[in-house]
Design a protein around this nucleic acid. Structure first.
Length: 420
RNA sequence: GCGGAUGUAGCUCAGGGGUUAGAGCGCCUGACUGUGGCUCAGGAGGUCGUGGGUUCAAGACCCAUCAUCCGCCCCA
C-alpha cells in the first residue's frame, strides 16, 4: 500500500457518512431549537491563543499541539479544541458586547498529538455549543440539558451525566493545598516528572486512574467543602434546575476536567460502554475571554466527541439507515440509452434519486446492480418499449412489473411511492 | 512518551523454512437469445505492510521501520 491515512486520522467512508450526517443534523436542530446559531472558524490559529486558553502547563500545550511556522514566519497551531477559536472570533467581531447574550454552536475537527486508540484520534471531531454573556446558573443548566439531550437522542441510552463545582480560583487554591498535603507521603516516592505534574495541577490527581494514586487519595475531603457560600448556592440551584428539566445526573466531586480555564460548574457525560472515555465535557469559563484580551465576559459551553458518540451509538445498537436510490434506470438494449438518460433526468427533476449503469452492461447485470443498490424500482426500456413508447416499472422487492406509457411513468412511480 | 498483541486477495482469515501462496464471503462472466436475489460452472484479483539481514531456499526466522488494535498517560 503506497500511502495510508496518517497515524491517528481516519477516512469517513460512504457507508459511514449517514451516521455522521445524522449526528450533525440532530445536534444542529437541537441547538437551533434553543436559539443557537452555527459558527465556523479556521482550522489553525496563532499558537499563542491556545497557550493562553488551555494553560501553559497543560498536556495539550506542552506535548500535544500540532505547531508550525508558515512562510511568513508566523507561529501557528492546528486547533486542539473548539472553544478558543470561537472565543477569539467572538472578540474579534464584537459578537458579544456588554449585556448581550450570544448562543453559538459548531462542528470542528481538532488535533492532538497523542497516542491513538479506541475513541482517541489525532484528528477528531467535536460538536459543541457556547453560551456567552450570561452569568446566571440557568445558563449552566441549559447547556448541560442540551448536552444530555443530544447524547440521549443520538441513541446513547446508557448515558451518565456527572456534575461538579470547582468554585472560584480562591477556593481552588485552598483545595489544591489540601490535596497536596494529603498525598505528600505518597508523592515522595513518585518520579520527579509525576511530582512536577502533581504540583502544577493537583486537581488532575483526582481524575487519575492509577490505583496507587487512587489509594493515596482515599479520605481526601471533597472540593465541595471548600466552596464559598455563593458557589455552594449556585451548585444547589443548578441541581434544582436539572431536576426540574428532567435531566438525570450524579454529583461527582472527583470530576475536574483537564483545561485550566474552567470555573464553578464542570460536567461530563460518559457511557458504561465506553470505559474511560468521556462523550462530552464542559463547564463554565468566566475568565477565558478576558485572558485572551476581551472584556470580562462570562461563558459556559461543552464539546461532544463525535467519534465517541458514534461508538456509544453503536454499543447501544442504534442504526442509521443507509443511502438508497429510489430508482435504477436500465437500458435493456443499447439503442435505449438516450431515452433512459432523459427519463432519469425527468425523475430527478421531480426529486427522486435515480442511478444508472454508465457502462450499459447486460440487462441481467444492470438488474443485479439495481438490486444491490437497494433501489425500490427498476425502470427498464429496450427496443420493444422504444417502439411502443412504453417503459417497464419493476418493483425490486416484489418483482411486480407493469408496462406503462412513458409519459405516465413518473406519475405511476410517485403515486405508488406515496401509496406505499 | 511507555507496555502488550497484530499486519497474507476488496473483507474475514488459514498457511509457522522446501515446487507455481489458499479458503469463505464479495466482484465479473456464463448456464438463462430481454429480467435481480437462489443454485451450479468458470474467471479476475496478491510487490505476503516496508527496508535490510540469516539461509542452497524466507510469507514463515532475526533486526529495523511504518501502521492498526488493547492498556497507561491525556482528553473529546
Amino acid at each position: 500500500m503506497p500511502y495510508q491515512a496518517p497515524r491517528g486520522t481516519a477516512d469517513i467512508l460512504p457507508d459511514d457518512i449517514n451516521r455522521w450526517q445524522h449526528v450533525e443534523h440532530v445536534f444542529g436542530a437541537l441547538a437551533a431549537s434553543y436559539g443557537y446559531r452555527e459558527i465556523r472558524t479556521p482550522i489553525f490559529e496563532d499558537r499563542d491563543l491556545f497557550i493562553r486558553t488551555s494553560g501553559e502547563t497543560s498536556d495539550i500545550v506542552t506535548k500535544e499541539m500540532y505547531e508550525f511556522v508558515d512562510k511568513g514566519g508566523r507561529n501557528l497551531a492546528l486547533r486542539p479544541e473548539g472553544t478558543a477559536s470561537v472565543m477569539r472570533a467572538v472578540i474579534e467581531h464584537g459578537l458579544c458586547p456588554q449585556g448581550v447574550i450570544q448562543r453559538l454552536f459548531y462542528f470542528v475537527s481538532f488535533f492532538r498529538y497523542n497516542r491513538p486508540g479506541r475513541g482517541r484520534l489525532r484528528q477528531a471531531h467535536q460538536a459543541g455549543i457556547e453560551l456567552i454573556g450570561a452569568t446566571g446558573v440557568q445558563a449552566d443548566a441549559e447547556v448541560i440539558e442540551i448536552a444530555a439531550t443530544a447524547a440521549k437522542s443520538l441513541g446513547v441510552a446508557d448515558l451518565v451525566t456527572t456534575i461538579n463545582s470547582i468554585g472560584r480560583s480562591e477556593a481552588r487554591a485552598k483545595y489544591r493545598e489540601v490535596i497536596l498535603s494529603h498525598v505528600e507521603s505518597w508523592l515522595r516516592d513518585q518520579t520527579t516528572e509525576a511530582q512536577d505534574k502533581a504540583r502544577k495541577n493537583p486537581l488532575g490527581l483526582l481524575d487519575s486512574k492509577d490505583e496507587d494514586a487512587k489509594k493515596a487519595l482515599v479520605g481526601v475531603p471533597s472540593i465541595l467543602e471548600f466552596l464559598e457560600d455563593e458557589s455552594k448556592a449556585r451548585f444547589d440551584k443548578l441541581q434544582q434546575l436539572l431536576t426540574d428539566a428532567g435531566v438525570s445526573y450524579i454529583v461527582d466531586p472527583m470530576v475536574v476536567r483537564g483545561l485550566d480555564y474552567y470555573t464553578e460548574t464542570v460536567f461530563e457525560g460518559v457511557s458504561p460502554s465506553l470505559e474511560g472515555l468521556s462523550i462530552f465535557g464542559g463547564g463554565r469559563y468566566d475568565n477565558l475571554i478576558k485572558a485572551i484580551g476581551g472584556s470580562a465576559t462570562p461563558s459556559v459551553g461543552f464539546g461532544m466527541g463525535i467519534e465517541r458518540i458514534l461508538l456509544a451509538m453503536e454499543a447501544n445498537g442504534l442504526q442509521v439507515s443507509a443511502y438508497k436510490p429510489d430508482v435504477f434506470a436500465i437500458a435493456a438494449t443499447p439503442d435505449a440509452e438516450t431515452t433512459v438518460l432523459r427519463l432519469a433526468r425527468e425523475f430527478r427533476g421531480a426529486g427522486l434519486k435515480v442511478t444508472t449503469d454508465p457502462d450499459v452492461r447486460s440487462l441481467k447485470s444492470q438488474l443485479r446492480q439495481a438490486d444491490r443498490s437497494g433501489a425500490e424500482y427498476a425502470l427498464i426500456v429496450g427496443s420493444d418499449e422504444l417502439s411502443k413508447g412504453t417503459v417497464q416499472i419493476r418493483s425490486l422487492a416484489t418483482s411486480d412489473q407493469t408496462e406503462v406509457q412513458i409519459e405516465q411513468a413518473l406519475r405511476e412511480v410517485t403515486s405508488s411511492k406515496v401509496g406505499a
